[in-house]
Design a protein around this nucleic acid. Structure first.
Length: 922
RNA sequence: GGGCGGAUAGCUCAGUUGGAAGAGCGCUGCCCUUACAAGGCAGAGGUCACAGGUUCGAUCCCUGUUCCGCCUACCA
């Protein structure tokens, strides 16, 4: 027996796990290609396999589950495909940290044992997030759980790589790339986070080499890179310097002379001194300038961003300088260089300067531009169709505001560096014949601090790879059998870019692919629009010939109550599991959906969740109340013959159904949730249940059977309407009340029923609500004890409404706990000294006993003053000739009506006020 | 530097063809009324950032200003 009949409070813990188990055991979430419905599919943004559920996931997943449950109930063939991402650098970092705490390193372990270790870690902790997703109630098809390094998905990765290579869309080349000196790997442009910092601009004197005594002063934010300068640029039109182009300067601290060149692209006449040092090996702009002018590239840092003595020597840096800075990191070397320059009088000045610093998105280490051979995707040919798909509406981005962001980025896209010098990931399917490439393969052996041998293989620029689906047998050039596989792995986003089709079986032509591709909707946060969404669009169009999804819904980022980004170090993290445990999963889900308004950050405070826990409890008790009275006979009458209150609530329910459906179609989860909240709490509970109490509590009431039926219909329908948002409590209640079917999960979603629209009942209700509220106000003003009946008379200046009030008299009496008398104005009994008025409705309250009428008078005066203001404004408008002449007639009529109504109210108010004053005087 | 978005009640935010300022939470007062005190009822609180413009009329449209976010960028 359900606890619904017993417990006054809803206990989520006793409900959630039980129903989730039932749902999965019965296979409700399993998608079948033979399902007759129109397909509706979503692939989940795969969370990091070793991660755990944070509140951002909770939002993202709740919204997807709402869509999926809603579409499933609509009879669609739904698939929500779950999975996890191997998250290359992030996961490798986690495991490396573990090793460090054991005194080990990845180098000490070696590649194979390290990867094995990561797999172990995945086996141990990879299911954490899956289990947490289940606690959130996610209706994923767990039979189709995928992992980006599954055999099938890995096959897809190789296939895509090989095909792109064969088409010339993937190439290997030595370029200046972003390099993380801590992770020791290349990064793509978007994996670098830019942060504005206060830096310094150093002005350094470079003397001309001809002993003329002249010099050029260059400005730089990174003085240490000057040791790798290979030219100085000035603007070709700069009258200050243009005559110097072609001459040379002596590079301070070195024994080198470097040319002065003219370059209009690099040099901005307005900035700094107008002379720019060029370090092609350590700056992206300088790199390009170096390309333009065939300048040599002198790298002076090694892969850990330490100043490398050998490189410094070959850059002919003075020996004492080398000795001072060898093996130092940039931050330590900079002051030494500054000092050396200053000592030699070469430092002209130093000024403060705002600059942006690139940091690794995984470990926040400052990223260095680094010259190395890497693999790239030639991205322009892929980007063009992806731009068109959004422009022509094949893909809708919601909210639309992000479209320009997407298009802007795509139009300006740079080649994608896809190789990473880490071990955890898809190893690049490229092999090098050791014999043919002998001079390009560098094997370096060294030992780490613990004495472990470390083998570092570098494949220099010029090595010729064989790209293939499997290791080649013999070299086509020399017949050699010795192959060295490229040690690099692919960017983790390369495999997630294939997610919408690799998870459905591609490259095989599976029935799943045929049924569920393109997927219907992608739900994601803005932070991975470029990392992931853009890549999926490009690769989906390329390999499937169709878009990967029709709609992209972009939701906000979750922040804390102060708007701060949640982070462990700040200690402001809201743990969804903790919250679910404390307030219930449904409360958390409802909170997140109700706050998911588009385009804004979402500030989450625990109080909000608590508020929706109360909502769940309210629903629970409404259901308890209903159950108490559902025992008796029920009778389904034609709608027109049902009692007033029943017709009213069904009409309101109809509106709620329409609103929720329309808003979900528009991805306005917030509005849909708010409509549900308002309907359930303020219409169903506050008014409907109160209205029908007299009927239900009187066993002989003639309306009993019909009302019991409506009560059940409304509750049952409301549970279905709410189910996608609050799956657990709705199932528990639905199962307990009379119902047909096995589970609410597979019931039909409510449809509006036009026959239930009852504008007459709605209009009457508004009248009733107005009257009841007015009496209640009077009760408070007159300090009537709650239990005491209050006597009052009421009148409406509209005869029809006056008549309706008479019909509503029993409801009026019950809801106001009073004895109403429908009096025709203006014959008010003398005892009724307090009159309250609103919009033509006047209520005269009988003052009994000794009450303080001062409060009542204050209120009357205040109301009259407010109305005076309104009337003045209205009269002013209506006296305005332009307004009368130019405003639309319906607006004019409305204004005039309002004024008449105000005049009536005003008359009643002032007569009541006079009466009250007279009484108070006496 | 460029782009986008925001500024409405104490807080978080709704408010689309321009025509009487809304919700939730919080706050105040009264109530443990037979579904619910995780509740009910009543109430207080806003020159819709600022300055102009268009209009009979502007929270809404236009221009400018200030402040705050975010994205993006090669001014060393």
């Amino acid at each position: 027996m359900s606890s619904l009949r017993l417990d006054k409070t809803y206990d989520p813990k006793s409900v959630e796990a039980r129903w989730y188990r039932t749902w999965t055991e019965r296979g409700y979430f399993h998608a079948s290609t033979s399902h007759p419905g129109q397909p509706y599919s979503i692939v989940i943004p795969p969370p990091n396999v070793t991660g755990s559920l944070h509140v951002g996931h909770a939002l993202n997943h709740s919204l997807q589950d709402i869509l999926i449950r809603w579409r499933r109930m609509q009879g669609r063939n739904t698939l929500w495909l779950p999975g996890t991402d191997h998250a290359g650098i992030a996961t490798q970092n986690v495991v490396e940290k573990q090793l460090l705490s054991e005194g080990l390193s990845r180098d000490a372990l070696g590649r194979e044992r390290f990867i094995e270790r990561v797999w172990q870690w995945k086996a141990a902790s990879g299911n954490t997030i899956i289990e947490q997703q289940k606690q959130l109630g996610e209706s994923c098809d767990w039979d189709r759980l995928r992992f980006t390094m599954d055999e099938g998905l890995s096959k897809a990765v190789v296939e895509v790589f090989v095909r792109l290579f064969e088409e010339g869309l993937i190439y290997r080349g030595e370029r200046l790339i972003n390099w993380c000196p801590r992770c020791l790997t290349a990064l793509s442009d978007i994996e670098v986070e830019h942060e504005e910092v206060k830096g310094k601009l150093f002005h350094i004197r470079y003397p001309l080499a001809d002993d003329s005594g002249l010099s050029l002063v260059v400005a730089t934010t990174r003085p240490e890179t000057m040791l790798g300068d290979t030219a100085v640029a000035v603007h070709p039109d700069d009258p200050r310097y243009r005559h110097l182009i072609g001459r040379k300067v002596r590079l301070p601290l070195t024994r080198r002379e470097i040319p002065i060149i003219g370059d209009a692209v690099l040099v901005d006449l307005e900035f700094g001194t107008g002379a720019v040092k060029i370090t092609p090996a350590h700056d992206f702009n300088d790199y390009e300038a170096g390309e333009r002018h065939q300048l040599p590239r002198l790298a002076i840092f090694d892969h850990q961003a330490l100043l490398d003595p050998a490189s410094l020597a070959s850059a002919r840096v003075e020996d004492d300088i080398i000795a001072a800075i060898a093996r130092l990191p940039v931050s330590k070397a900079r002051p030494k260089i500054e000092q050396a320059l200053s000592d030699r009088g070469m430092l002209v000045k130093v000024e403060d300067h705002k600059m942006s610093l690139g940091k690794c998105y995984r470990c926040k280490t400052v990223v260095e531009p680094y010259l190395s051979p890497q693999w790239f995707v030639n991205i322009k040919p892929l980007a063009e169709p992806a731009i068109r798909a959004v422009e022509d509406g094949s893909i809708r981005i919601i909210p639309e505001g992000w479209i320009n962001n997407y298009l802007g980025w795509m139009r300006d896209i740079k080649d994608w560096c896809i190789s990473r010098q880490i071990w955890w990931g898809h190893q690049i399917p490229a092999w090098y014949c050791e014999q043919c490439n002998e001079r390009f393969i560098h094997k370096q052996t060294s030992t780490d601090a613990a004495g472990n041998a470390i083998l570092r293989i570098t494949l220099l620029q010029g090595a010729t790879p064989v790209v293939a689906r499997a290791a080649p047998a013999a070299c086509p050039q020399c017949g050699g059998q010795q192959w060295l596989r490229d040690p690099d792995v692919l960017d983790t986003w390369f495999s997630s870019g294939l997610w919408p089709f690799s998870t459905l079986g591609w490259p095989e032509q599976t029935p799943e692919l045929k049924t569920y591709y393109p997927t219907s909707t992608l739900v994601t946060g803005l932070d991975i629009l470029f990392f992931w969404v853009a890549r999926m669009i490009m690769l989906g169009l390329k390999f499937m010939g169709d878009v990967p999804f029709r709609d992209v819904y972009i939701h906000a980022l979750v922040r804390d109550a102060e708007g701060q980004k949640m982070s462990k170090s700040k200690g402001n993290v809201i743990d969804p599991l903790h919250v679910m445990h404390q307030f219930g999963t449904d409360a958390l889900r409802f909170t997140l959906s109700s706050m998911a308004s588009p385009g804004r950050d979402l500030k989450l405070a625990e109080e909000r969740i608590e508020g929706y826990r109360n909502f769940a409890n309210k629903i629970w008790n409404a259901a308890r109340f209903s159950l108490m009275y559902l025992e008796g006979p029920r009778l389904s009458k034609p709608f027109a013959e049902r009692p007033f209150a029943d017709r009213w609530i069904l009409s309101r329910l109809n509106t709620a159904i329409r609103t929720v459906t329309t808003e979900l179609e528009a991805y306005r989860f917030d509005r849909a949730a708010n409509a549900l909240y308002h309907f359930i709490w303020h219409e169903y509970c506050d008014w409907y249940l109160e209205l029908i109490k007299p009927t239900l509590q009187n066993p002989a009431h003639p309306d009993g059977p019909a009302t019991r039926q409506t009560l059940l219909d409304t509750l049952e329908t409301t549970m279905r309407l709410l189910h996608p948002f609050m799956p657990f409590i709705t199932e528990e209640i639905w199962q307990t009340i009379p119902h047909e079917g096995d589970s609410i999960v597979v019931q039909r979603y409510p449809m509006p029923n036009d026959a239930w629209d009852a504008p007459d009942a709605e209009q009457r209700f508004l009248l009733l609500e107005q009257a009841v509220s007015l009496v209640r106000t009077g009760r408070v003003l007159l300090s009537y004890p709650p239990g005491q009946q209050i006597a009052f008379a009421l009148a409406h200046d509209d005869a029809e409404k006056q008549r309706q009030l008479q019909q509503l008299q029993p409801h009026l009496a019950h809801l106001s706990r009073g004895t109403p008398e429908i009096a025709s104005q203006p014959a008010w009994p003398p005892a009724q000294r307090l009159r309250l008025v609103t919009e033509g409705l006047t209520i005269g309250l009988v003052v009994s006993g000794d009450v303080d009428l001062k409060k009542a008078l204050d209120r009357l005066v205040k109301q009259r003053e407010d109305q005076d203001k309104d009337m003045a404004r209205l009269t002013g408008k209506l006296d305005n000739q332009d307004f009368v002449a130019k405003a639309p007639p319906e607006v004019l009529a409305e204004h005039r009506m309002r004024l008449r109504s105000l005049e009536h109210d005003q008359a009643m108010l002032s007569s009541s006020e006079q009466q009250l004053r007279a009484f108070l005087k006496a």
